[in-house]
Computed example of a mutant assay.
Amino acid sequence: MSASKHWERRIPIYLIGMFLMTIGVNLSVLSGIGVSPIDTLPYIASLISQKSLGLCTTLVFSVYILLQIVILRRRFQWKNLLQIVLSIIFGWFVSLSGALTALLPQHPSYPIQFIYMLCSIVFLGSGIFLYVTADIMSMPADGVALALAEVSGKPMSSCKIIFDCTVVVLTVILSVTQLHNISGVREGTLIAAFGVGMCIRFWEKRMTQPLKAFLFGK
């Protein structure tokens, strides 16, 4: 079945997946016990450079696109340069979902913070699974994980865990060397680095075939 068909099914699932991801991002920020791995590098870059988080996100995502080119080489599809457009849509979704999560209690007790963090993992993992399965275009960070999966032959979920852990380690190094503290990375970040990949794997095993049948079936 051509991947160019059934846009009326794939686009809504794709956008729902992206929106679920942004809810996860905002919940991780709201938890106060570490931002999600997907946001650690832009967050620390904004602190170091004193530039806006939006600008730093664009710059970091641009590096991720370059990294995909390096990994895939001739297999890189140049249409994926349009990932920068997705970054803009993602930013708008972050603002929209941020207005929703703002309705939740702010500065809660630690048990509630931990619940926020766990919920952020579920939203991020579920969102990634949906939009990746829709097979339209990956966000830059997940594009790196997909590129690693294509080259290595390992499941995307495993490559996602490896990539997220690498990003967290790099963030800690930059934070300590440039800010002389650890900012944005706490226990929630480390748990999410493993948890998001595990959530993706959970859905891969149970929902990949039914979802693909819905998205690409007759």
Rank of each mutant, 00 (worst) to 15 (best):
G24L: 12
Q106R: 14
R73W: 07
V168P: 00
G197Y: 05
M207P: 00
E187F: 05
Y131R: 04
L15A: 01
P37H: 04
L103F: 07
T177N: 11
I136N: 01
L104C: 01
I182P: 00
V168N: 03
R74V: 07
A134T: 02
V25H: 11
A145K: 10
W203P: 02
S95A: 09
G127K: 10
Q209A: 14
W92D: 07
R201E: 06
G98H: 08
P105A: 13
P155A: 15
V168I: 06
N181H: 10
I65T: 03
E187I: 06
P42E: 11
S138W: 13
G188H: 03
A99D: 00
C199I: 13
I162T: 08
K5A: 05
S152A: 03
W78P: 00
G32I: 08
C119A: 13
Y14V: 04
L82M: 09
L66H: 09
I128G: 04
F61Q: 06
H180C: 04
V122T: 02
G197C: 08
G125Q: 08
L211N: 07
R10F: 03
I200R: 12
K51I: 04
Y116V: 12
N26G: 03
L170Q: 00
M198S: 12
V60R: 09
G91M: 08
G217R: 15
R9G: 12
I16A: 09
C119P: 01
I23P: 00
K5H: 03
G197K: 11
F114I: 12
I182R: 06
W78K: 10
G125S: 09
F214D: 00
R75P: 00
L148C: 11
V25N: 10
L124R: 02
K5V: 03
G91Q: 06
I11W: 14
P108T: 09
L215V: 01
I112H: 11
Q113P: 10
A149E: 05
L81M: 08
I173M: 14
S109F: 13
L215I: 03
T57V: 02
L82E: 01
L66C: 09
G54F: 12
L174C: 08
V196P: 07
E8V: 05
R73I: 07
G217V: 15
L55S: 06
G24Q: 12
F202D: 03
V172Y: 07
V70D: 01
L211S: 06
F129E: 02
L59R: 04
S31A: 15
L179N: 01
L82D: 02
K51N: 02
E204W: 09
V169F: 09
G127H: 08
S175W: 08
G153A: 14
M156H: 11
V167A: 04
I161S: 11
V122Y: 02
M117V: 10
L72G: 00
Y43K: 07
L59K: 02
V144R: 02
G24W: 14
Q83W: 10
M117R: 12
R9F: 15
P140G: 14
K212I: 05
T177F: 13
V169D: 00
D164N: 05
V176N: 03
V85S: 05
T171G: 06
V176E: 03
I23M: 06
M1A: 09
L170H: 01
V169Q: 01
Q68T: 09
L146P: 01
L66Y: 10
A99V: 03
G127D: 05
